[in-house]
Design a protein around this nucleic acid. Structure first.
Lengths: 149, 149
DNA sequence: GAAATTTACTTGAGTACTCAATGGTTGTGG
DNA sequence: CCACAACCATTGAGTACTCAAGTAAATTTC
């Protein structure tokens, strides 16, 4: 039982360490937080670079309120824009702008490199990262947007 | 490269899912957040149930400011108390009170059960949880306080 | 066709931190 | 012995959310 709790604590702590590294790197190079990056990436993978805010919330694990709070700054700096639904006034879309697309591209490169530096070292035997990904999936960890693993 | 980033995203997401479950369970049963629990547990494992606040910060991965912010409410509800250092006025100790010890005991039981329900199911083959713990340690995930794994 | 219900989103208030600045204390070096 | 450096902790302000309440719109039910 103690092993399970230990593992949960490790997960929480490993995440904090990892997200801080992403925040630092993405913040310094691209003015984005990790959370910003996740949102932009989700939009970048959506058809036409756009999706309903309610769907975006579900996709990234935030509440609708959280999506409103998170998209506000991104809209202000022009990386995302809000589009109405032509038929349903309740619905709004979040759409990546051209500037957002470009920023995302650069951020993805930086994030990919950081991820590679974290998980691509010699201390990881072949298959271990895939195993880790599988375990995390089991715990509710969705990964890159797109066809599910 | 994409596999590495995918795994990082999974880690972030899995943690959010996990911590939310702990927050809900511990919050409902014991009026504690997961972060509260982590602090109390760290103190519970320290000699005499007490440690310097600067050391507590390091142990749980918070800044000194974060420890101040987090211990405030716990001090107010009497689970933790602040003690001065007899010789060094710069230093303050955080110490578990008797009420804190009791609350921690109950919370540990609940947390252990939740951890077991998350990681103790049939979908985890023998050794997989230990592997996961090892991978998380590699990523900076410290676990239960006490002798390092 | 209108009332009730559901859906989508925002907003006020709150939580859980970090950052930077600040102040007090102790230790070190000349 | 004093100036400077380092250590410890707090606080104001900020970030990144959630929760609950509220509003508007669409759908469902009778």
């Amino acid at each position: 039982m103690s092993e399970y709790l230990d593992t949960c604590l490790r997960l929480a702590r490993a995440q904090a360490v990892l997200v801080k590294r992403f925040d630092n790197q993405l913040g310094r190079l691209h003015g984005l937080s990790f959370a910003d990056f996740v949102l932009l990436q989700q939009l970048g993978s959506a058809p036409g670079g756009r999706m309903r805010r309610v769907d975006l919330a579900a996709a990234v694990g935030l509440t609708a309120s959280g999506v409103t709070r998170s998209l506000g700054p991104l809209e202000r700096i022009g990386l995302v824009e809000r589009e109405p639904d032509p038929r349903d006034a309740r619905v709004a879309y979040a759409a990546l702008t051209e500037a957002g697309r470009e920023r995302l591209q650069h951020a993805e490169k930086a994030a990919g490199q950081l991820a590679a530096s974290v998980l691509g070292g010699e201390e990881w035997a072949p298959g271990e990262v895939a195993s880790l990904a599988g375990y995390l999936a089991r715990l509710g960890g969705t990964g890159l947007p797109g066809p599910t693993a």
